[in-house]
Design a protein around this nucleic acid. Structure first.
Length: 202
DNA sequence: GGGAAGATAATCT
DNA sequence: GATTATCTTCCCT
């Protein structure tokens, strides 16, 4: 069962980010399905968040996807190498999004290994946002696509985590954002092997 | 096991 | 021309 639009179109993107833990992410690329449940996210909270591309309401060809109504994908290239997959939240004109940082894979392991150019399954296959996008075959052609589509979507399969299994810590790689870099907008499932590296917690 | 550095290109100044 | 929501390899302890 796909997540309804109402799940995404809430103003409180921090809550959306937290609730995305345990939801299943699927892609169907060239008829091949990959899937897994989300174990790590980060919230990017609109025009007042210095770490967000949309800080100050900056509207450019790249960021305009963030200004769309919640429930679409925001995919872009970072550091010249890595594609990053975000879920757009809130409503049209309010640029909030959630970065998917890590997924615990459950389906399509073989094609993930192929896409990642790996020979054997290791936890880092989907640990970190660049790795997740590559393993799932997500690229900029999917920027702006609806999450109700049959190419890229999320499902609720009844999996959830108790409060004491979830950690809320500062985000990664956003030191330039000054005081906003300290906000606890990064969420992950404690102890999951697929959570990305800075995991010195608990 | 851990820190440092290199790769590599769209985007904005 | 500088910057960037990163990953991997390499070399050291």
């Amino acid at each position: 069962m796909k997540l309804p639009l109402a799940f995404y179109q809430r103003e409180d993107v921090v809550t959306v980010a937290r609730e995305l833990l345990g939801k299943y992410l699927f892609t169907c690329i060239d008829g091949v399905i990959s899937g897994g449940y989300i174990v790590e996210t980060e919230a990017y909270n609109g025009i007042n968040d210095k770490a967000a591309h949309s800080y100050g309401g900056r509207l450019t060809p790249r960021t305009k996807t963030m200004f769309e109504a919640g429930g679409v994908a925001y995919v872009y290239l970072c550091y010249g190498i890595h594609e990053m997959f975000n879920v757009v939240a809130s409503t049209e004109g309010d640029p909030r999004a959630v970065l998917i940082r890590a997924v615990h894979p459950t389906e399509g392991l073989e094609v993930m290994l192929y896409r990642r150019n790996m020979l054997a399954l290791k936890p880092n296959i989907t640990a970190g946002p660049g790795s997740v996008a590559q393993a799932f075959g997500i690229n900029r052609k999917l920027n702006g696509i609806s999450l109700q589509s049959d190419t890229l979507w999320l499902e609720d399969r009844g999996l959830s985590f108790a409060a004491d299994q979830i950690a809320a810590v500062p985000r990664v790689g956003v030191a330039y954002a000054k005081e906003d870099a300290l906000l606890p907008y990064r969420f992950f499932v404690k102890g999951d092997a697929y959570v990305s590296k800075p995991n010195k917690y608990e």
